[in-house]
């Protein structure tokens, strides 16, 4: 976890993430790891005890995790949402917009490039899971 990059003010969650099956079986688990093909909606009844969801990106080109993140945030999940695996700097902005607020990349990221990537676009065209206001709202107040 040396590469962990967080955009949250709370302390990192200490408990290890367990598999989805294990999480659903163990009523006291508080952290879960979601593989790319697994259904994020299965977690919705358990938000009360859930502090960390780690979404796996086996390859950076595998975009299923973006939908997992949107589904969790749309359903009201407010805990830590971590992208783990083949997480690269050029995908970070979209991940942030989909609701990820922590990152565990397999390879360390250049923090200067991270900062530039996240700050480059002054405007966005869509509502997403972040606080960015889409331009159609800026245009019409």
């Amino acid at each position: 976890m040396d590469n962990l990059l967080r955009f949250r003010d709370d302390e990192p969650h200490e408990e290890p993430a367990v598999t989805l099956d294990a999480f659903l079986e163990q009523s006291d688990a508080t952290a879960v790891r979601l593989e790319a093909g697994e259904d994020a909606r299965l977690l919705i009844p358990h938000f009360g005890r859930l502090a960390l969801v780690e979404v796996s990106f086996p390859r950076f080109r595998d975009g299923r995790g973006y939908s997992s993140a949107r589904i969790l945030r749309e359903a009201g999940y407010t805990g830590e949402l971590r992208a783990e695996g083949d997480v690269l700097v050029d995908q970070l902005l979209f991940m942030r917009r989909c609701g990820f607020d922590s990152f565990a990349p397999a390879q360390p990221l250049d923090l200067d490039v991270v900062k530039a990537s996240l700050e480059r676009y002054p405007n966005v065209y869509q509502t997403a899971a972040d606080r960015s206001v889409p331009v159609w709202n800026l245009r019409h107040g």
Binding site: F60, R61, D62, G63, Y66, S67, R70, Q91, L93, F94, M95, R97, C98, Y121, V124, Y125, Q126, A128, V135, W136
Partner: peptide
């Protein structure tokens, strides 16, 4: 506009 840099739909199959 809406499909430009859509954050969820930029790493499709």
């Amino acid at each position: 506009q809406w499909t430009t840099f859509h954050p969820e739909f930029s790493y499709f199959p």
